[in-house]
């Protein structure tokens, strides 16, 4: 029973990181109907640059985390300017954008390898002071709690920002209808660039949290989360922010529960993706999908 409770708690922690990663992923999709396949590479660079800031530049994690997040946001601007904006007028921009974002991912991965080396790295010991609590036989660390809090806070801020702020409403307007947005006086290309900034900043933040959680970062760490992130946003409903949060948690929980039940981690990914198929059979538009079917 304790093992199960422990795994549920662990699922919550890792699920919140998946959710944060997926929220950024789904944001761009919701606004532009395109997938930015360089999102995982931004996740990697965000995490690795935070390690560099702490280790080589001697910064506190409290400064390195926001800086790495902003840096990742800057990469988002670069992705938009290089991979998506030039193709926007093309009739096949969804497909060509997908391909050029893969190219950006390859460039970023190579940059990560060149800048930070091929070996896996970790935050220096003592980067975050860790307290360990035992509650009813379940072990929880202050680091884990901090990760969930930060991830939840960022997702909450994003949700409020989109619901309440003027710019957030402009983002939703562009998502609804680009032409209407233009006629209402929204600077559409500016809003799109800003959307990429937020999306990638969240992806980078997820990378830092992921690195802190597993205490290990490598240039190929994006691989592990790339498909999961995609699965999470499909699970939650493409373009839905609450769906991505919920999907992240569901995905994290199904992973750890598989380990708890089967006693081995071999089946972890297989079961998690099977859950994806099962949910899509029952709800083709995802957990919180808008139920809108694309016209062919």
């Amino acid at each position: 029973m304790n093992l199960l409770a422990q795994q549920l708690v662990n699922g919550l922690f890792i699920g919140s990181v998946y959710g944060l990663f997926a929220v950024g992923y789904t944001l761009v999709f919701g606004v532009l109907d395109i997938l930015n396949l360089a999102h995982a590479a931004v996740f990697t660079l965000g995490g690795l640059s935070a390690v560099w800031l702490v280790q080589a530049a001697g910064m506190s994690i409290w400064l390195a985390f926001p800086l790495a997040t902003l840096l990742a946001g800057g990469l988002g601007l670069l992705i938009n300017a290089a991979a998506f904006a030039p193709l926007r007028r093309r009739a096949d921009s969804q497909f060509s954008g997908l391909i050029s974002s893969i190219a950006m991912a390859i460039i970023f991965d190579a940059a990560a390898l060149g800048l930070f080396g091929a070996r896996s790295v970790r935050f220096p010991p003592g980067t975050v002071k860790v307290h360990v609590w035992q509650i009813a036989g379940v072990t929880i660390t202050s680091l884990q709690v901090g990760i969930v809090l930060v991830a939840t806070l960022l997702m909450l801020i994003l949700t409020l920002f989109l619901q309440r702020s003027r710019t957030g409403k402009a983002i939703r307007t562009v998502a609804e209808n680009e032409r209407a947005a233009m006629l209402l006086g929204v600077n559409v290309s500016g809003i799109i660039a800003f959307t990429f900034f937020i999306s990638s900043a969240l992806g980078g933040a997820a990378g830092v949290l992921y690195g802190l959680y597993f205490d290990s970062l490598a240039p190929d760490m994006g691989r592990a989360i790339e498909l999961k992130g995609l699965a999470v946003i499909i699970l939650g409903g493409m373009g839905s922010i609450p769906g991505a949060i919920l999907g992240g948690l569901a995905f994290g929980l199904s992973e750890v529960l598989t380990v708890a039940v089967s006693g081995t981690s071999n089946l972890r990914d297989a079961v998690a993706f099977t859950v994806l198929f099962a949910i899509l059979l029952l709800r083709p538009s995802g957990l919180l999908g808008r139920g809108k079917l694309r016209e062919a």
Binding site: R172, T173, N177, R179, A180, L183, G185
Partner: peptide, 13 residues
Amino acid sequence: VQIPEGRLVLAGM
């Protein structure tokens, strides 16, 4: 300011 053909209201807002 243009009020477009087909209205283009923001249906989800």
